[in-house]
Write a protein that binds this DNA or RNA. Structure first.
Length: 678
RNA sequence: GCCGAAGUGGCGGAAUUGGCAGACGCAGGGGAUUCAAAAUCCCCCGGGCUUUAUGUCCCUGAGGGUUCAAGUCCCUCCUUCGGCACCA
């Protein structure tokens, strides 16, 4: 990555967690707090390593549409985080020396409404512009005060700024426009300089009100000026007071104005992203060393590939203060791989998210000592078919891993574009409102359930509670029911062991007896329900419900004929197979007791037969004007005419339709008849 | 503020393509079995009304709409949760 220019070191104002004693990436700061320990994060100016994830912003955004089997909300979060916006870069000029003053805007259609320009307080130009002037001190104090404020609070109590006693030149009108610096303009987005259009941007409006800056309307709904503006008009509209662009709708005006700017070389169409490069340096021991050596002569020199990986030293002291790596002389002092002179190893380690960005590839070839992994093996096993994780990684791990996958592909190590084909984000389990998680501690230990009822009950109970993507407030009620079911199931199988052993497990279907057909219908339709919900939807709660239904049914069934006994035995076998994933210990035991030699793990999942998925008779719902008035049992695939004959004879229906005009008849085969009368 | 998701009995939840709302389970009520209990089994269990039955009306956050038919589609609103939050 270093060779590709995707890893670089730069000095920047970065997030520092004082409790963890380390820096953090943007993605790892939530509401100005460290994602791990929830301490307040402060800004520090440090030289740090970054991965150029921004170089993949477009691909990371575009490929989201390939991910059909990812939840929409995860893709949306990534889309917002990447934050691509189309706009125009416009070059204002500094009035005093004609130097360019580039700004970024998504609304070039408001260009003629500019009444001031704002430079972010930390922008170097601010310092330069006031140097040696009477305002220098005042501005310096303002900048210092602003930068001391935490990022997300900055300007929360109101917009503040200072006029710099300098002017910019409007690119099209040449008008002199005052330049300010203000707390609401961010250095890290766009160019760090903005054009302010108070008439059409609420933030600019508020600032202009406070500092008595003129408001110039250039867009309205119908193209005529409003008498007074109470607030910024941020919608699109028709331009006015904009020279030759007056009268154009916003959308056209954006294009026309940008074209004009390009023609006179005072601007260009451009794209901006919110996504920042990934800060990967950490001042921790527990992370992968960054494999470079600092040499006085050669500068930054990567450790040669044959010497990788650089392993963590063991002769370190954990004092709880500072970076433990710095206590290891053997680690720090090495010779420069380039010139052989004295060098020092990089002391920072990498964010552990770096490791989780490709571990799934390494899993495919984890004994490999010569390379991270063998390409053929990874191309065979990956991408991961189904990835299960928490939503909290939407813009962390799940974004980093996608980035890494694309980089590894571009370096030629894989052929894979996206790491995870299907993503299931399991819901959070809460207990009295508190989150249960690996890093925050599990607030409920299912141990007491296991203790009292056994592991199968605990497992069944968890799976039966709700579909996995749903958040769940943990409540114990219901455990009893699962335990009762397991006991019922045990008695059902156990009581029929001789039958299972005799039957040979062959399913046969002979005559057309209703009892047999119903039994076959129950077992086959249950199998279909369980199979579909398990494989396609991962809705294990409905699988359990279906199995319970079947077991209840079988519990009340006593086979009469030989044929019925055979089918019944088969149904019992199937119910064991279906219940196996949910209550494996109990089922294994029953399976063995039933005389099966082969363990159930090796047994293949049965296949349902479509022929038995519907019964010969179906219940037909009869509605009059959309209200259910009667139900009748008819044979399957009965034609509309035949059904209609029966419906007309139905006393209840007659009551509702006699003496009325039949306007319409709706017929849904095997399901429903709706008669519309007047 | 913007974006998104969700809202169904006392509770967890089901209804996969617009076609019987409430599957399955919990809790609750009644009964059988028992000397008694545990366990088990059976029945009832969204609400209202009445003539108590194969009766009738209402019910999926609220209001409107589309449709023969809406938990499901459309519009408005409310509530809850999640994400982003001066991104120019």
């Amino acid at each position: 990555m270093y060779k590709k220019g995707l890893a670089y070191k730069k000095k920047a104002a970065i997030n520092w967690c004082p409790a963890c004693d380390t820096v953090l990436a943007n993605e790892q700061v939530e509401e100005n707090r460290c994602w791990r320990c929830e301490s307040e994060v402060v800004l520090k100016d440090l030289e740090q390593w970054f991965f150029r994830i921004s170089a993949y912003a477009d691909e990371l955004l575009d490929d989201l549409q390939i991910l059909a089997n990812w939840p929409e909300k995860v893709k949306l979060q990534q889309r917002n985080w990447i934050g691509k916006s189309y706009g125009t870069e416009i070059y204002f000029r500094l009035a005093k020396d004609n130097r360019p003053l580039p700004i970024f805007t998504t609304r070039p259609d408001t260009l003629f409404g500019v009444t001031y320009v704002v430079i972010a307080p930390e922008h170097p130009l601010v310092k330069e512009l006031v140097e040696g002037k009477e305002k220098e001190r005042e501005v310096k104090e303002f900048v210092e005060k602003t930068l001391k404020e935490e990022k997300h609070i900055r300007g929360a109590e109101g917009k503040e700024g200072i006029f710099l006693d300098e002017y910019a030149l409007h690119p099209l009108t040449g008008e002199k426009i005052p330049i300010y610096t203000a707390n609401f303009v961010l250095m890290e987005y766009g160019t760090g300089i903005i054009m302010s259009v108070p008439a059409h941007d609420q933030r600019d409006y508020e600032f202009a009100q406070k500092y008595n800056i003129p408001v110039r309307q250039v867009i309205s709904e119908d193209g005529s000026a409003d008498e007074s503006l109470e607030a910024a008009y941020e919608e699109e509209g028709i331009l006015l007071a904009s020279e030759e662009f007056s009268g154009l709708p916003s959308e056209d005006a954006r294009k026309e104005i940008t074209r004009k700017l390009e023609k006179v070389e005072k601007g260009r169409e451009t794209v901006q992203y919110k996504l920042r490069d990934w800060l990967i340096s950490r001042q921790r021991y527990w992370g992968t060393p960054i494999p470079v050596v600092h040499c006085e002569k050669c500068g930054i020199v990567p450790v040669p590939e044959e010497d990788l990986p650089v392993e963590l030293p063991l002769d370190v002291e954990f004092s709880g203060v500072g970076n433990p790596l710095e206590t290891s002389d053997s680690f720090r002092d090495v010779s420069c791989p380039c010139c052989g002179g004295n060098g020092q190893r990089e002391m920072d380690t990498m964010d552990t998210f770096v490791d989780s960005s490709w571990y799934f590839f390494r899993y495919c070839d984890n004994q490999n000592t010569r390379a991270p992994f063998n390409k053929a093996k990874v191309d065979y096993w990956c991408p991961v078919d189904n990835y299960i994780g928490g939503i909290e990684h939407a813009i962390l791990h799940l974004l980093y891993a996608r980035f890494f996958t694309k980089v590894l592909r571009d370096i030629g190590l894989t052929e894979i574009d996206e790491p995870f084909t299907h993503l299931l984000t399991q819901g959070m389990v809460t207990k009295d409102g508190a989150k249960m998680s690996k890093s925050l501690g599990n607030t409920v230990d299912p141990g007491y359930i296991i203790e009292k009822y056994g592991a199968d009950t605990a497992r069944l109970f968890i799976l039966f509670a709700a579909p996995p993507e749903k958040d769940l407030e943990w409540l114990d009620s219901g455990v009893e029911g699962c335990f009762r079911f397991i006991n019922r199931f045990w008695r059902l199988i156990h009581g029929n062991i001789p039958l299972i052993q005799q039957s040979g497990g062959q399913e046969e279907y002979g005559g057309g007896e209703k009892r047999e057909k119903e039994l076959l219908y129950m077992m086959h339709s249950t199998l279909k329900k369980v199979t579909d919900n398990m494989e396609k939807r991962y809705h294990f709660n409905t699988c359990v419900a279906a199995i319970m239904e079947l077991v209840n049914y079988l519990g009340g069934y006593s086979p009469q004929t030989d044929n019925e006994r055979k089918i019944f035995a088969k149904a019992l076998q199937w119910s064991m197979i279906m219940a196996f994933p949910f209550i494996p210990h109990v089922v294994s035991e029953l399976w063995e007791k039933s005389g099966y030699k082969e363990p159930l793990d090796n047994y293949s999942w049965p296949e349902y037969n479509r022929e038995f998925l519907s019964m010969d008779d179906v219940e037909m719902v009869v509605q009059v004007n959309g209200k259910i008035r009667s139900k009748m049992t008819v044979s399957r695939n009965m034609s509309e005419e035949e059904v209609w004959e029966l419906v007309q004879k139905d006393e209840k229906i007659q009551r509702y339709i006699s003496g009325k005009d039949i306007v319409k008849k709706i017929f849904v085969p095997d399901k429903l008849v709706n008669i519309v009368v007047k």
